[in-house]
Lab assay of single mutants.
Amino acid sequence: KTYTFRVRIVDEETGEEKEIEVTAKSEEEAKKAAEELKKKYPNLKVELE
């Protein structure tokens, strides 16, 4: 079973919002993916929905 999570990304500089879908095998995995995004884009606000 896989879970699909919507991750909302807000670029703090431009105020631009993007939504991406993360497919993960567990909620834990999705959280890790969101953390990776935060590391990659430090000025983005990442929200897991």
Rank of each mutant, 00 (worst) to 15 (best):
I20L: 07
E35L: 11
E47V: 15
E13K: 10
E17D: 05
V46G: 04
E28D: 08
G15A: 03
I20S: 01
K31C: 14
K31V: 10
K40H: 07
A33R: 10
V46M: 09
T14R: 03
T2H: 09
K25A: 14
E35H: 07
K39F: 07
T2V: 12
T14K: 02
L48F: 13
E49Y: 04
F5N: 00
T4K: 12
S26T: 13
F5L: 08
A24Y: 11
E27P: 09
K32A: 11
K45Q: 08
L44N: 05
T14L: 03
P42R: 04
K45E: 04
Y3H: 12
E19W: 15
P42A: 04
L48H: 05
V22G: 02
E21L: 15
E16Y: 09
K31Y: 13
E19L: 15
E16I: 08
K32D: 07
V7R: 00
Y3P: 15
T2N: 11
A33N: 04
K18S: 11
L44I: 08
E19H: 14
K31R: 12
K38V: 12
E16K: 05
V22K: 00
E16L: 09
T14V: 01
E36M: 10
K31T: 08
E47A: 08
E35I: 07
K38I: 12
E28L: 10
V7C: 06
G15Y: 02
V10M: 08
L37G: 01
K1P: 14
L44K: 07
S26E: 02
L48I: 13
E17Q: 08
D11Y: 03
Y3T: 07
E13F: 11
Y41K: 02
L44Y: 10
A30L: 13
R6N: 05
L44R: 07
R8W: 14
K31D: 03
V46Q: 04
T23Y: 14
N43S: 07
E49M: 14
K39W: 06
E27S: 06
D11R: 01
E13I: 12
K32C: 12
K40P: 01
E28R: 07
K32M: 11
I20H: 02
K32E: 11
I20Y: 11
A30Q: 01
T23Q: 12
Y41Q: 02
V10C: 11
T23K: 10
E29A: 08
V22M: 07
S26P: 00
T4C: 15
A24F: 14
E21D: 05
V10G: 01
L37R: 01
K38A: 11
E21W: 15
K31W: 13
E21A: 06
E28Q: 09
R8E: 00
K32G: 06
R8C: 10
E16H: 06
T23L: 10
S26K: 00
V7G: 01
K45C: 07
F5A: 03
E47L: 14
F5C: 07
V22D: 00
E29D: 12
F5H: 03
E12A: 09
E13C: 14
E19Q: 11
V7H: 00
R8M: 06
E27K: 08
T4A: 05
V46W: 09
K25G: 13
E35Q: 10
K38C: 12
E29P: 00
G15P: 00
K38P: 01
L37P: 00
D11C: 12
E35D: 10
G15F: 02
E47K: 08
E36H: 08
E28A: 11
E17L: 10
R6I: 15
E27V: 13
R6E: 02
E13P: 01
N43E: 05
E47H: 13
S26Y: 02
K1A: 10
E27A: 10
T23E: 11
Y41D: 02
E13L: 14
G15V: 00
A33W: 15
Y3L: 08
A30R: 02
E13S: 12
E21P: 03
R8F: 11
A30K: 01
R8I: 12
E47T: 14
S26G: 04
E49G: 11
E35V: 07
Y41I: 03
E13N: 11
V7E: 00
A24S: 05
E47N: 10
Y41S: 02
N43C: 07
E12V: 12
Y3D: 05
N43L: 07
A24M: 05
T23C: 13
L48Y: 13
E49W: 03
E16S: 04
T2M: 14
F5Q: 02
E49C: 14
E47W: 12
K32N: 10
V46P: 03
E19M: 15
G15W: 02
K31S: 07
K18N: 07
E19R: 11
E13T: 12
K18M: 14
E36I: 09
K40C: 11
F5K: 01
G15E: 01
V46E: 03
K1E: 12
D11S: 03
F5P: 00
V22W: 06
E29C: 11
K45L: 12
E47M: 13
Y41M: 04
Y3I: 10
A34S: 05
V7S: 00
E49D: 09
I20C: 14
K18F: 15
R8T: 08
E13Q: 11
K25V: 12
V7T: 01
F5R: 01
E16A: 06
E27N: 06
K45T: 11
